[in-house]
Amino acid sequence: MPLLRLYMKFNDVLGMLCLIVACCGVAFAIIALSAAALERLLFGFGYAILNDLPPLLMPWVVFPMMGVLLRADRHVTVDFLPHFLAPRGRLFLNLLLGAVICAAAVWLLMGGLDALAFFRRLRQTTETGIRFPLWWIYLSFPVGFALLAWFALEKAITALVELLTGTPVRNHKDGLQS
């Protein structure tokens, strides 16, 4: 069990990291766009980078959060079946779900890596003030799918452990303040 606890602690940290990245992205967007508006009112230069960079960073805000959303169970599913299941049935469902989502995410990850290789070959760059390769942004897709697979695996493992031992692994508070 200490191993399991360590594993889940690690996942907590990982989830927190994704959340911090997302928060930084949102905070940057607020600051950049407010600055853009203010700068334009005062001086009129209208730096395109303040307007164009925040949306370009959205994939990094969003895709790494897929796994976190799955963990937090944030109204992203049709919660229909769980209502009809006994606690043990729900554990079975979670095990199945974790496995299915993990498999799906791995498949998407392979697709994402395939696409990433294409975009690296294409070597397109951005058009904003600072030029950087577009694949830096496309990287957020495979990273997101990998994290999703990883957290889905956790869901399956915890469900399995609970089924085998009969005791709850954690109080399902998943490290997110609501």
């Binding site: 334009r40 001086f43 009129g44 230069f45 209208g46 395109a48 307007n51 164009d52």
Partner: peptide, 9 residues
């Protein structure tokens, strides 16, 4: 160069 007062992207 044309002396624009502001530029909007």
């Amino acid at each position: 160069a044309l002396g624009a007062g502001r530029m909007v992207s």
